[in-house]
Amino acid sequence: MRVNDLLFSLLFILLFVVAATQITQLSEIASATVSARLFPEMVIGGGILMGVIEMIRTLVSRPRNDDPGFRESWKEAFLRRRMYLLGLFTVYLIAITHVGFLVATAVFCFVTILVLAPRIKPASLVIALAVTVGLLGLIYVLLVVYLKAFLP
């Protein structure tokens, strides 16, 4: 966790430094009583300060025994099913604009159920199909017919 904390603090400081370079480009308005930069500078300055404090705290403090190590936590982050779901969902969002919402949703729902399932049995295929049809029906009736909302 120590390495994670250090990496997080570094990234955090870096992002706030990048933000600081943008904020300095803001121009002042002569008639304004309060500077346009004041609040952004307070936020960015405070953020950088917190990042530095956390980094020092991490370096100074003794590592706790119950904290997961760097490898364990990143192994957990890239667990197979989590990554499949994230990948499928990202592809689904991109696909919406290309193939349309209903087609993309039908494919995403059906495929995700099968990909996430521990074992694919004939019954799983039927349930996946039923869930997909049910979801599309629910969205259509609830959103399009009843709530008069637009679909992506």
Binding site: L93, C109, T112, L116, A128
Partner: peptide, 15 residues
């Protein structure tokens, strides 16, 4: 089983 719930919830959040 969660595999039936998760994609449904993601789609509903998207909509």
């Amino acid at each position: 089983p969660r595999q039936f719930v998760i994609p449904v919830l993601l789609v509903l959040c998207t909509v």
